[in-house]
Design a protein around this nucleic acid. Sequence first.
DNA 1: CATGAATGAGATTTCATTCAT
DNA 2: GATGAATGAAATCTCATTCAT
Lengths: 223, 223, 223, 223
Amino acid sequence: MPKSPPRHVSSGGAVEPAVRRGRPTGDHVAKRAELLKAAASVIAQEGYAGASLRKVAQRAGYTTGAVTYYFANKEELVTALIESRFDRYEEMLEAARGQADIKALIEQWLALTTGDPEYWPVMSQLLAHARFEPAFAALIERRYARYREVHTSIIAAGQALGTIRDDIPADLLADQLSAMGDGWMMMFPFEPERFTPGRIQALVDAAIALISPAPDTRRTSGP
Amino acid sequence: MPKSPPRHVSSGGAVEPAVRRGRPTGDHVAKRAELLKAAASVIAQEGYAGASLRKVAQRAGYTTGAVTYYFANKEELVTALIESRFDRYEEMLEAARGQADIKALIEQWLALTTGDPEYWPVMSQLLAHARFEPAFAALIERRYARYREVHTSIIAAGQALGTIRDDIPADLLADQLSAMGDGWMMMFPFEPERFTPGRIQALVDAAIALISPAPDTRRTSGP
Amino acid sequence: MPKSPPRHVSSGGAVEPAVRRGRPTGDHVAKRAELLKAAASVIAQEGYAGASLRKVAQRAGYTTGAVTYYFANKEELVTALIESRFDRYEEMLEAARGQADIKALIEQWLALTTGDPEYWPVMSQLLAHARFEPAFAALIERRYARYREVHTSIIAAGQALGTIRDDIPADLLADQLSAMGDGWMMMFPFEPERFTPGRIQALVDAAIALISPAPDTRRTSGP
Amino acid sequence: MPKSPPRHVSSGGAVEPAVRRGRPTGDHVAKRAELLKAAASVIAQEGYAGASLRKVAQRAGYTTGAVTYYFANKEELVTALIESRFDRYEEMLEAARGQADIKALIEQWLALTTGDPEYWPVMSQLLAHARFEPAFAALIERRYARYREVHTSIIAAGQALGTIRDDIPADLLADQLSAMGDGWMMMFPFEPERFTPGRIQALVDAAIALISPAPDTRRTSGP
DNA sequence: CATGAATGAGATTTCATTCAT
DNA sequence: GATGAATGAAATCTCATTCAT
């Protein structure tokens, strides 16, 4: 019984049949992922405004029509891209939540975002444009709200343990750290040469120092 | 160069042709300023990608031709806009440099950026796109480099005076603060309702607390 | 002619290849009929211009490929659809020809066209477009010519019997009635709410009155 | 003080300045009319579905961009076209209303619609498509409602005078006549050769005969 | 001085059709 | 026998830019 093609599968499901029967499915999911990668690459290099479907198609080695075959819209393509990026971050966040260690989280965030040299360039473009596409804006608001919660709870846990300074409310600290990250993300693409691994590490260390309890003073105030 | 319409002065210059008699020389400059204002408004509302010259002209109450008459092309218009925005910040910075008080600078920066509700929305758009227009990118790199210097020297002065913690190098602190500012700028347009004056002040206070020396514990531990 | 997929029989023919064994021969015919039904439905709802093969396939629950498998191309699909619609009318017409009663024919035509709420919407679309596809135009010209003949002869018979006014030639009356029908067909889809069963009946009654002989006045003027 | 261009002037106003000052206005209104004519011509020849802006532009001797300069949309172009066609009919109708003579109206309608060989072909296309463009549908419903009123009142007046049969309510007669007109309009483009002036006149005469009072019967019933 | 008509390139999107599997 | 991936052409629309007036 013929079915309409499995178009526009939302990101999560990787429910591939264990045994592919009949004709190879052409692997809709994989093709979409391939196109998303091409889109990210184009956005990183040409910016969101300069990223036409044509260029995405070319980079992936297809025709424009193929892109719109796999994604109904440009909007849908970009939405899927944003989702996939956030999914990666969220995965990491879930893992980090168990550890309740903000420093570890920062390090992992660093590994994630610097592991892919396109991560910051792409995210900054998506973020800048999201406001003008209601679908994106909603998506980002939703996700960010969740991150803020998790960040805040991790920091609060750190404060309870005494590993994080407690003279500033956890939610403000969370916002500060997020803002720093977003700020680096925005500036990185301008002068990637300034953001050497060494300097990035120094910035991260400094951030950790900023949120750590006042050094040794407690001990000093002892007997 | 087919025609040489009125010299497109970079920003402040009043290099008007001597030929004009009687008519106020300021006309040209004033009209450019008007168009820049319209451009900022359009960019804030529709994003950089959505800001066509036609819309700018319409918003300013001019004709399409007027825009390209007063600005050689779109790039020049946006360049002038970026310059004008940076000029405002730089003015403030020069004043603040004398005071050598980072806290005062932060407060003034806050007054500047929140005084105009379009400041953050416009800057975030310009920043996001600047990378893809060499002229913009160069401009921004140049300006930012100077700001970093001034910020760093102000912070270093604060460290010397003991008003700023000195366990983190001044240049890193400067970068952290800048990143926070940029981060807020990026997120503000998404959820302006989250950035109430109260919360912004709390964030700023928290930022100041972060860079302040460990609170009087040392002195307390004294005699 | 690159490939010769299953013979695309014009409409009724069951010229299935003898090769198929076991499987019901009616499949092919039935599937074509199903697709035709879907096509009619799509055309009624979205108009001819808005009726893409994809939509037809979707509505029928088939794949894109299926449509072009069962019909060589769009033209053939639509041709088959037109034929099938005309076939229904023609069937009725043949039956009516024996009765030689124009009033009965009108009533039957009414039953046919209002029995299926999509009849007028579909026909009006097909009619409007037929002119620009030579195949359709030829088909329609041919069919209409026959109808005109039959209508005319039925009306002429009525005139001979005195049940239809004879001060207007039968062929003109036939054209008038056809035009009225086509006119209603065109306007019906606009304001279906105006064409209540009651009003339609009134229009039909009025049409019958128009073509009836002057009401018994002649006889009344008798003795 | 520059003003934004006078785009999208609604059909009615021919308020041209008596004295054109400065640069010739380029005659926005005239250009729009020119493009409408081209559009009508393309629609008549290629059908609504086949009438692309490109073809319209080509026929008018412009580029596609020029068309969208004068009309924001394809929709706006077609709306303007429909309006202009209806305006012509309405003008005539207003004139005819004074005469209160349905026969004269029919003759004038005939002159109007057959005077321009594209009238019927264009109108039939517009009508067929109007249903799928809410803007068109609304426009047509509104106009037709008015026509029905005027037609009905003219016919009623004729009935009062005894020049029109009064055994059928005026509104039904009006609908019958309109339907005939629409029906001819639909079929004419198929077989223009059948609609010779002679046959059209015969059809019109027949229509008039249909709605005339029963001939001479009144007189016959006299002494 | 300044306008606004017009261009031409490019973007998104839709679609009938082809064809390897 | 049937699928659905992929194509390529065309359509609508937007826009920076040019240029005669």
